[in-house]
Simulated assay, not measured.
Amino acid sequence: MDKPSDDSTHHPDDKKPPTFWQMLHSVMAAAFGVQSHKNRARDFTHGKPSHFVIMGVAFTALFALALMGIVQLVLHFAVP
């Protein structure tokens, strides 16, 4: 006899594309190398590559600008 299928792992939301916040979370997690398998599978299955590329470039630019700002701030206070 067949086992009853376990539908507890399949939610209705699994068919929807990732939201902005889910994509931002995925981009940040991927940038730091801690992306979960579940989220990566969702992104590759339901996400659009162009959205992730745009968010990745924007995140990288903002991250670089933030680091440059921190360095400038430290140098401003370190040099007499």
Rank of each mutant, 00 (worst) to 15 (best):
L65R: 13
F44Q: 11
V27W: 00
L62A: 10
S26T: 02
R42N: 05
K48T: 09
H76D: 13
T9D: 09
A66H: 11
S36F: 01
A64P: 02
R42H: 15
A41E: 12
Q35N: 15
D13L: 07
D2T: 07
L67I: 09
K15F: 14
V74R: 12
V53E: 10
K3M: 09
R40W: 07
M55G: 03
T45L: 13
S36P: 00
K16E: 07
K15S: 14
G47V: 02
V79A: 15
D6P: 00
M1A: 09
S36V: 02
D6Q: 01
F59A: 02
F32W: 08
M23K: 02
R42W: 03
L65N: 15
S8Y: 00
P80I: 11
L73V: 05
L24I: 04
N39A: 13
Q72A: 15
K3Q: 08
F20C: 03
T45Q: 14
H51A: 04
S50M: 08
W21G: 02
D7A: 09
P80G: 11
K15H: 12
V34R: 14
D7L: 15
P80H: 06
T19I: 00
A61W: 08
D14G: 01
G69Q: 10
H51N: 07
M1R: 04
D13S: 10
K16D: 14
S36H: 03
H46N: 11
V74N: 06
L24G: 03
K16W: 12
H76S: 15
V53Y: 09
A30L: 15
L73M: 09
A66M: 14
A31M: 12
A78W: 08
A64S: 10
Q22P: 00
F77S: 15
S50Q: 08
A78Y: 05
D13H: 09
L73K: 13
G69T: 04
A58T: 08
F59S: 03
H10P: 04
K38L: 12
A29K: 03
F59D: 01
L67S: 13
V34D: 10
V57H: 11
I54L: 08
M23F: 00
H37L: 14
I54V: 12
L65V: 12
F44W: 09
H51T: 02
T60A: 14
D6E: 03
T60Y: 10
R42E: 05
V57I: 11
F44H: 14
K48L: 14
Q35W: 10
I70M: 14
F77N: 14
Q72R: 13
P4R: 07
S50R: 10
D6K: 01
S36G: 04
S50L: 10
S5G: 08
L24Q: 04
K48R: 11
V57R: 10
F44I: 15
V34A: 07
L24E: 02
